[in-house]
Simulated scan of single mutants.
Amino acid sequence: TFADHKHWVACCRPGQKLLGNEFTAFDCCDSGQELLGSKGTGYKCCPIGQTYDECTGVYKPVVTCPGAETMVNGQCLCPSGTYRTSAGVCEAVKCSSGVQFGKCYTFTLENGHRFGYNSAGFYTASEESRAQQFGKFKLCTNEYCTASNDINPGQPFYIKDIHGTANGGQHSKQWLNNAKDGSHITKTAHFSQAGMFTITKWSCGKYCLSGKDHGVGPTCPTEMLGATFTTADDQSCVPLTLLEVPCDVRSLANNCIW
């Protein structure tokens, strides 16, 4: 079988033709094939239209991911901060404060003590005793605590203490008041005197309690750490850890609280 230029000849099978030249290589290729390759990779008879990599199996087809998904380590994944709802559809992760209106929580301050009402007549974060009853705080949008949605930063709420005083339980289900500028936050039975609070999420499971128009900060004495609204500093807040607790200790729904 002669090459096309008739300068070279070889013994090829019927139906094959001699391809190549003195600068590349020679091979007997079937009809519909061409000789592809290089000195570095070698040469091979390949179907017309294919590349050398496709022909030899080195080629890996480019896989495209649908929609907003991108290829990561061979898998189609949604970008960070989103999740997959269907093929090619990625939606933003909806971050939640983890705190809801209508639920009850305990507040543990940075000194390790739970915030509660003291027989001295105000709220403190101090050791529980016959003079100190920890608070079970219900977070409410109104006097009737009707809402049950998430609380977002800057969204005001009122705080109702389900517990009463230590050694008797008087004055239960009253509101934390709006004492400011050094006066200790205490209880009030009058909703019109209730303080308006806000809360924001911190990292590592922490929160910070502030006010709607004012900040909230610590007030003395140190051994009976109290809190007060700070009218000159609207960014002040009291760091604390929240723990969701049952509002009603006798409710069957408590079995599902976890």
Results as ranks from 00 to 15, higher is better:
residue 42 G to S: 06
residue 113 H to F: 14
residue 109 L to P: 03
residue 37 G to D: 04
residue 60 K to C: 09
residue 251 S to D: 15
residue 17 K to V: 05
residue 246 P to C: 15
residue 64 T to M: 13
residue 167 N to G: 07
residue 122 F to V: 02
residue 47 P to S: 14
residue 101 F to K: 07
residue 13 R to V: 04
residue 184 H to P: 04
residue 90 C to N: 06
residue 132 Q to I: 08
residue 254 N to W: 04
residue 137 F to T: 00
residue 23 F to E: 15
residue 236 S to N: 12
residue 117 Y to C: 01
residue 89 V to M: 09
residue 211 G to A: 07
residue 52 Y to F: 15
residue 42 G to R: 07
residue 30 D to T: 10
residue 186 T to D: 06
residue 71 M to P: 00
residue 85 T to E: 12
residue 207 Y to V: 01
residue 22 E to A: 13
residue 203 S to E: 11
residue 57 G to E: 09
residue 119 S to P: 00
residue 188 T to E: 06
residue 156 P to Q: 01
residue 24 T to H: 11
residue 65 C to M: 03
residue 218 P to V: 04
residue 28 C to E: 13
residue 90 C to I: 03
residue 190 H to S: 12
residue 98 G to W: 08
residue 2 F to Q: 06
residue 126 S to K: 08
residue 37 G to V: 02
residue 250 R to C: 14
residue 175 W to Q: 07
residue 123 Y to P: 00
residue 130 R to E: 06
residue 12 C to D: 08
residue 214 H to L: 08
residue 8 W to R: 15
residue 247 C to S: 10
residue 112 G to I: 13
residue 200 T to N: 13
residue 66 P to I: 02
residue 195 G to P: 06
residue 108 T to Y: 03
residue 98 G to Y: 07
residue 210 S to I: 00
residue 35 L to A: 05
residue 177 N to S: 10
residue 50 Q to V: 05
residue 50 Q to L: 15
residue 70 T to C: 07
residue 242 L to F: 10
residue 38 S to H: 10
residue 240 L to N: 00
residue 244 E to T: 13
residue 137 F to E: 03
residue 157 F to S: 01
residue 101 F to L: 15
residue 134 F to V: 01
residue 82 T to M: 13
residue 118 N to R: 05
